[in-house]
Structure formats: structure tokens, C-alpha cells
Amino acid sequence: MSDGAKSGCLIIACGALAREFLAVRAANGWSDAQLAITCLPAIWHNRPEKIPAGVRAKIRWGKKRYAKIFVLYGDCGTGGALDAVLKEEEVERIDGPHCYDFFAGHQAFEEMMEEELGTFFLTDYIARHFDRLIWQGMGLDRHPELRDAYFGHYRRLVYLAQIDDPALTERAEKAAARLGLTFERRFTGYGEMATFMKLAAASQQQD
């Protein structure tokens, strides 16, 4: 594909954000041709060392096909390695260390951490897949005695809700009970993720 044939905008995202991405895109009436998505495995939440190389591969694939590329990942535990890749590839990502920060908003997230440093966060995705990602993913189904080792320093679970869904709220509340944490729900909507996507979509009109 020649440079002149490249068009549209690609967002490289964590698989945990795919549903939210599609919801924001639909709400704004953007087509796939205007704002496309490709995702890396959500389970890499637990294997952040895989993220930088995975994102680089997606960027190099995308540069052959799209006029613009953006990355919908926080640092996500890569210790700055993802930002080093993005600097080399000259690609911008959403601000923030993780999705909890950009869903809640940086100031609100910092305030929650000041209120209670021992806070464990859920998003809609993690609430929906708590058993697979947390209970089974961390081996608690096989070794429940590890709960205190993993979560003994936490005091509360805050569910950052992107949508109003009583069933998800119930799942999140049950997750808090299983972890022995107090429960709190805060509705965030799509937060700074929606703003970032709007800027990505608008960037095509600026050229």
C-alpha cells in the first residue's frame, strides 16, 4: 500500500477496553473507516512485560495502512518501557498510568488514593470477568489462603462503573465480599478515554 493510499485513524488498545471503545465510537457516529481499533490480549494485564513489544508490532503493522495511529494504554505496569517504544515510533498514547486513572479522571483518582491508599479498583470489564482475571488468574480458586497475602493491605474495593448496570454492580459487590473488602461504587462513564478518542478522530481533519 502506498503512502498516498493510507487513510483513517487506528487506535491500538488493551482488549479490556474494546467494548467501551465501540460504545464511544457508536455514540459519536464514527465509522470503522474513520476510527478503527486493534487490540492486544486483555490478559496481559497480568503480563505487562508483553505489552511494549506487542504494541510495537501493532504500530508497524498499522503504519502501512493508516494515516494516524494512537495508543489506548496507560503505562500498565511496564515501568516506562511502553513509553520508550512510543517515543521511538513517534506515536501518542492517552495520559495516565492505567485505565483507572483515565476513567476516573486524574484528580479524582488521586483524591481516592489520598482517602484510602489501600484501594483495589474494578472497571466494568474486570467486574464482568472477575473470576477469570482475578480469582482464577491469581490462583485464588486453587489456593484461597493466598487472599490475605495478595489483598491483606487493601481496605476497600472501588468499582469505577462505565455504564449503569445493576447486574455488574452486584458482581462487583460480590467480588468485594470475596476479597474481604468494603465496597464503593463510583460512576465515571468513559472519562478521559472518550476525550482522547475525540481528539484522535479530530486529528484527521487537521491535516
Rank of each mutant, 00 (worst) to 15 (best):
Q107D: 12
A202E: 13
E145H: 13
S2C: 03
K64Y: 00
C39T: 15
R47P: 01
F70W: 08
K63S: 05
G62V: 10
L117H: 04
F70P: 00
E49M: 14
T195L: 09
Y73R: 05
A194K: 09
V91S: 00
A53C: 07
A33S: 15
P41L: 08
Y150T: 10
S203F: 01
S31W: 07
T123E: 03
T78L: 02
I11N: 04
R147E: 13
L10N: 06
A175G: 13
D148H: 15
H45T: 02
A161R: 05
A194Y: 10
I59W: 05
S2Q: 10
L146M: 15
R65C: 02
Q34R: 13
A57H: 09
N46D: 15
L168A: 09
E116H: 01
P97Q: 03
Y66L: 03
L122M: 12
A202H: 07
Y125P: 04
K50F: 14
L179Q: 08
C9D: 00
M112C: 06
L10I: 07
D124A: 05
L17G: 02
R178Y: 09
T119M: 03
R156I: 13
A194S: 13
E111C: 01
V55G: 06
D95E: 07
V55M: 08
D141V: 13
A81Q: 08
R19S: 11
I12M: 03
A104W: 00
P41Q: 12
E20M: 02
A167R: 12
A172C: 13
R185T: 13
Y66H: 07
R155L: 11
T182C: 10
R19K: 11
A176E: 11
T119K: 01
G4N: 09
G96I: 02
E110V: 04
L160K: 06
A67D: 03
A201I: 01
F109Y: 09
A57Y: 04
F187K: 06
P52N: 10
R128K: 12
A13P: 02
F102P: 01
H106R: 12
A42Q: 12
V158G: 08
T182V: 12
G4W: 06
L40P: 05
A176W: 10
L86R: 00
H143T: 15
S31G: 15
E145D: 15
G62D: 10
I43D: 14
R155W: 11
R132T: 13
E92R: 03
L17Y: 03
M1Y: 07
V158R: 08
R93N: 01
L22G: 03
M113Q: 14
Q162E: 12
F70Y: 13
R171M: 15
E110T: 02
M138K: 12
A202V: 00
A36F: 07
L35Y: 09
M113I: 11
Y125M: 06
F130Q: 06
L181S: 14
G105W: 04
I163Q: 13
W30D: 04
D95P: 02
Y100P: 00
T78A: 04
S7D: 09
S31I: 10
D207T: 09
A36K: 08
A18S: 06
G15V: 08
I11S: 06
Q107A: 14
R171F: 12
R147D: 05
K64L: 10
Y125G: 02
R47K: 14
H143I: 14
G180L: 13
L160E: 02
